[in-house]
Design a protein around this nucleic acid. Sequence first.
DNA 1: ACCTGAACACCGTTCAAGT
DNA 2: ACCTGAACACCGTTCAAGT
Lengths: 209, 209
Amino acid sequence: MWTMSTPRTAARKTRGTYHHGHLRQALVDEAVRTIGRSGVDALTLRGVGAALGVSRTALYRHFADKDALLAVVAREGFVALKATLDAARTRCADLDGQLTDMGTAYVRFALDNQAHYLVMFGSFLERCQDAPELMADATAAFQALVAMIVDLQQAGRVRADDPLLLSRFVWASVHGIALLAINGQLGPDRSAGVALYAACAPRIRAALE
Amino acid sequence: MWTMSTPRTAARKTRGTYHHGHLRQALVDEAVRTIGRSGVDALTLRGVGAALGVSRTALYRHFADKDALLAVVAREGFVALKATLDAARTRCADLDGQLTDMGTAYVRFALDNQAHYLVMFGSFLERCQDAPELMADATAAFQALVAMIVDLQQAGRVRADDPLLLSRFVWASVHGIALLAINGQLGPDRSAGVALYAACAPRIRAALE
DNA sequence: ACCTGAACACCGTTCAAGT
DNA sequence: ACCTGAACACCGTTCAAGT
């Protein structure tokens, strides 16, 4: 499956050159790499700068502050999540298969992109409750699920309850599974989340009938 | 319902006295109060000390470091959560009613004790993956749910799947609902989580049949 | 035992100055 | 435009010293 980790080569500045060239994206990528390796709390702007061979204040040419950098990471995550969920619908002609694939894709995305996922739903949210673009990206990703539920309802395969409600139920379930897996509450094995979702998918399906 | 916020009066040291008296618990309570007001990232040991009229290093007589203080907050949370879940089973004679009450109690606990809940399941976990007492308390709370599912199975009211699996499914659902509510993803209203659970309870129940 | 103040090695952020 | 170094107001943590 598609992940965002493809271009994650260290984009260090070549010594002696004045301009970095692609500093903005390099800062975001390095932040994601640090968070993925050591957690959100281990992220320091000075460390990011040092890893890229750049002054600790160079970052402020591209981001207002640390939260602005994290907000970009979160937005990048929501955009990629939406793309992942939409792509999951193209593999299977059967609507029921699409729902299961979408759930699998969601949990896999969370595990393959833990750094993004932790920023998207982590403590950083407390400080930026009113960031309209961020909320818009998050909503857009969620709408991929709502559309799936609506299609299933129109095909008569899901009960005629409020689609927003049913979507939130499914979202809460896969979100909970993803977080329990990331936090190690399902055991040390990385793939425990995918396995748990596979076992839960028929239960979720039954709940929607 | 029972919450932990009952004795949350400011336990400031009376000026001039040398010993605080109950400094350890006062430190924990002040940490919880700060987190509840401003988020986990806003917690500083110096701030906690200042709020209690105590030196910034007094804390180290009771806790090895900041993570040790957070671990106590998390353990306190898991113990209280277990008590809340167990208590939810005493109000209703009907097993199905008990399951629904337990789910309601879980979501309500998370919303009424956001500070504890965020520490119990937040980014702090990344740094203390192997804290055996903490894991034991967390497991004990989870076992209250497993016992509920087993009782329902023995009464023939829940399908005969692996009870651990079914318990994790229910846990993931209520955990997801609680976190979405706390993070404001269900709207600004505080009680949105409780309302969403109330609507989801029949869906969860149907999934277990 | 419990508390204190000074000290150390870190942070995020600002700002005048360089190219 | 983009980058730098010094500076400021913070952190967590340690430690010798006080009661």
